[in-house]
Nucleic acid binder design. Structure first.
Lengths: 195, 195
DNA sequence: CACATTTATTATCATACATCAATGTGAGAC
DNA sequence: GTCTCACATTGATGTATGATAATAAATGTG
């Protein structure tokens, strides 16, 4: 089932079916079970994943043992631990599976290898990276200035479907607040909405 | 004085002097005065800047008129407002000059244009983007979990020379705290260091 | 130089959020 | 079915940081 990734490429690249299926032919799939740890801090890995179905998360663990969620990756997102994946350094973050997940394994130099076949592929890669940066800048902006409630509202606007798939304590961790605080924010919002 | 940017490229690309000077020949310089606003939210711009000397900042202004600093760009850093620069959308952030600054103007498709001459240039661009992402992930991680003091200590380790060049209220804004809080944090640290 | 403006400090008070602890609830294991 | 165990809620209390305001120091400007 590499169709999804192929569709993803074609949608963004305007290339022929042959080109696309050629590009995709050197890829393979991998499956992770719910709860499975994929990367530990310190690991040396080199694969990026395109999520076909399911949900991954990338997080850190601080000195007090507290988890901080850096990123969620649902369907059609990419996930990688960049220190290990692109810089050949030990991973600084953890990655695990929140749901049973199917991914397309994108090897370290997939993009440069298929460049002769699909020249525009590097441009696409660049565009996706710029988009990630834009996304993270927005998040930084929220973390700098917004209250717990504002961040939560922003989250549900951005990830309406994740709300239902991710336990609240993880959402809290993504927002940089405690589960208790999130619970109170929700209570507050609910109360206000009934008037 | 395009030397600096040329050196920057050569250091990372292992290309000949000719290639490098050819690449650099289509670029030009620009100067900004201290305090000058370069991009306003809403603007449509298309240039990225490589900072030769001086210091730029990228920031937002929230509904209460409060500034939040997304990024500093000292010598040898790149600065761009991505929404406008790469996505042809109105800028969401502001950019201005903290010091008199000299930049190399990197037009929107500089990288793809010189690709025929310096094929590896796209790889370099990709690497730089990955690096930005890594950098921002670390910052998000700090904002999620660290106290004001920890963030400040991290900042001075990361940007030892910016400390002296940037007013404290801007550092506070970058850290997501008030100038008053930063002042207290500093006082505290100073006290502890005298014992 | 004097004057205005920006920046930094300090003190007081207010508050959003954290922490701690108890209880409730629901889904999977057996 | 009931027993766990992870998750969510709620309340009481604590604390880091924000808000406000006054002063001081530094910086710029005519």
């Amino acid at each position: 089932m590499l169709d999804k990734f192929q569709a993803y490429l074609q949608e963004r690249l305007a290339i022929t079916d042959e080109q696309a299926s050629l590009a995709v032919s050197c890829l393979n799939l991998k499956h992770f079970k719910k709860g499975q740890v994929i990367t530990n801090a310190g690991d040396l890995k080199s694969d990026t994943y395109f999520i076909n179905s399911g949900l991954l998360r990338c997080f850190s663990i601080d000195e007090k043992g507290k988890e901080h969620i850096i990123q969620f990756a649902p369907e059609n997102w990419m996930m990688s631990e960049r220190s290990s994946t692109v810089f050949n350094e030990p991973a600084v973050f953890y990655i695990d599976a929140i749901e049973n997940t199917e991914v397309v394994v994108v090897k370290k130099d997939f993009f440069s290898e298929i460049q002769p076949i699909v020249p525009k592929i590097l441009q696409l890669n660049i565009l996706m990276l710029h988009n990630s940066i834009r996304f993270m800048q927005k998040r930084i902006n929220m973390l700098l200035g917004a209250t717990a409630e504002e961040r939560y509202l922003d989250f549900i606007k951005l990830y309406p479907n994740l709300m239902l798939r991710v336990p609240q304590w993880m959402i809290a961790s993504y927002l940089g607040i405690t589960p208790e605080s999130l619970s109170r924010v929700r209570k507050d919002l609910a109360k206000r909405h009934f008037k």
